[in-house]
Design a protein around this nucleic acid. Sequence first.
DNA 1: GACTAGAAGGGGCTAAGGTT
DNA 2: AACCTTAGCCCCTTCTAGTC
Length: 410
Amino acid sequence: MLHGSMRAFVLEEEENKAGLEVASSTMMKVEENMSNPTTSASSQNPVPAKRKRGLPGNPDPDAEVIALSPNTLMATNRFVCEICNKGFQRDQNLQLHRRGHNLPWKLKQRTNKQVRKKVYICPDASCVHHDPSRALGDLSGIKKHFSRKHGEKKWKCEKCSKKYAVHSDWRAHCKICGTREYRCDCGTLFSRRDSFITHRAFCDALAEESARVTQANPVADHHQHLYSQPLSSHELAAGQSTTMQPQFPDGLRSQHADIRRSHGTYVTMKQEISSPWAACQGPEPQPAASTSQSQMDPLSSIYATMLESEFQREGQSSLPASYRTSTTFPFLSATALFQKEAQMGAVTARPRHIDQMAAHTSSATGFSLGWCSGGAPLHGVKTHSALLHEMACPPPPPADIAGFSEGKPQ
DNA sequence: GACTAGAAGGGGCTAAGGTT
DNA sequence: AACCTTAGCCCCTTCTAGTC
């Protein structure tokens, strides 16, 4: 489809004779009656508050159409002296230079007549912008277009290996390349948010399924498969043995926490609980005999005292033996804490929300519900949960914690 | 020589349209 | 829906012709 009242068609010579670009031009007339939607619309409507650009490739119908050769579009010093082969960006520069060679020269004269708007067509015949009706409105535009579509892409992004022909495009890409990165818990990386969301839906469903399986078979855990490492806090909370010592690499552990933070989910617990893990990778467990109350660290001691008094208040003679022998409450893993609470609940009264917590193992919100449930727990249980909460959020523990890995409570 | 105006080059920003 | 590419617009700088 040709453009309507296109008046003139200036064709630049494709060939440069003797290295000198000759600006001879041919005038052509293209006569068809076709209205330009852009201009007709703009003439009918009042000027909008925010200026809108015209559609691509719909130049002013009265504009002068200029066809530059590929050489011209790509050349930097396209005006070349036939004597010394020196190139110049502009004809005026060349003409001035020719004076030095005592060659005839002619500077472009300023003209008083009104300059008609120029539009430029792409020299590539197969290109949509080769059609005068789709000519581009400015010279830099057609140059950029020709470079992008038909030129050599010599600018390469170091990060993603994408190539660009226009330097500014390359720079714009380099600014944002690698800044949008989405990482799932399972370690998979995504550059696109939608892909990441899709994957996460799958990954979460898998985690929930694993949690259900975990209740029946504590070994099953998709993160174990994915990381080849145990475990995350919510999985521990599902009731796995404390003899399993999670060994997240520090980097992965903090990364995991960061990811959850970005999801707005169970970040805090994850980070808090990770500290005891680090501690539990410490020295060999001490013999039970060596872990007397006097050797406890202050927090352990305080907690043991609190628990004992709690039991006594509830009518129990004293803390069960298994609790008294354990000296490491503040630095137990989440599993150990839950198990202890569950045991205590079995001794006193088993709270429903503990079961709920276990059932929510893969759900971030479910996990936090376990800690922050607004429901009315049974008498005594609230105290235990509060104590456990305090235990789960201790200051960083000392490096060697005696007796941590003694295993699960009797 | 100083100053001004115009042309050209290049880069940044962003709307529009296409793609995934 | 989000992302990517393309093209239009604008601004700044540089260079040169013309004028005083």
